[in-house]
Write a protein that binds this DNA or RNA. Structure first.
Lengths: 110, 110
DNA sequence: CAGTTTAGTAACCTTCTGGTTACCAAAAGA
DNA sequence: TCTTTTGGTAACCAGAAGGTTACTAAACTG
């Protein structure tokens, strides 16, 4: 897998997560797979707008469509989030350090 | 801390992370604190563009300015990333499951 | 085989984003 | 104090993003 591809898909991933509506869609799909109408019913925006959000999420491979027997459903695919987790790991020591410093500050200790 | 505020700052956070240039800035600041010119020298874009990115990062509290003795420097503040980590935790079980399924698939086991 | 439901797409509009150049303010140094 | 360095902001522009309505294509259902 070339670096450029990885870079690109990482961009798609972070872009997809940038919108609150899309994060909300993911949260809804965490509970259970849902039809597009089902998803749209949870928002004030129109169904085509949700369709567009779903396209972005599919491009980031965060959502996939499954034809479960009779109806087509949107299903959460959380696997790409492991890449966000990996990205975060490079910063973990820093925020740990920050928190420790904050804790020390709050407790009035040096 | 009201939920609305949290929601808002989470939006700022994910928005800030959505741009690859900004993520690159964070990576540079992980090595050491840097002046704005120092940061800008690492990109093909102009310094004002970097200034704008820095504003977004400051609004998300990911970067803070410190006047270290003689010069002002941009410093990484990774603490907000803990919120991304917390957000991810709600999905962890899902991608673990996905990976386990993928692993099983690759190994050709049921 | 109609008719209804479901969902994607086209066309369009407005706002946001990221970039530029030009300008300005403040701090550092001579 | 004058000059240079540093970096923020204003004004502007092109393209992307997110929303809408209208249309279209499948696929169930009666």
């Amino acid at each position: 897998m070339p670096a450029a591809t990885t870079r690109h898909s990482t961009d798609l991933l972070f872009k997809a997560l940038a919108d609150p509506t899309r994060r909300e869609i993911l949260a809804l799909l965490r509970q259970r797979s849902r039809s597009v109408n089902d998803l749209a019913a949870n928002f004030y925006t129109s169904r085509p707008a949700i369709s567009k959000h779903l396209r972005v999420l599919r491009e980031a491979s965060l959502v996939k469509d499954v034809t479960s027997g009779t109806s087509r459903l949107c299903e959460l695919n959380a696997a790409p989030l492991a890449r966000v987790d990996a990205w975060l790991r490079d910063y973990e020591t820093f925020w740990d350090r920050s928190l420790r410093r904050l804790k020390a500050h709050v407790e009035g200790k040096r």
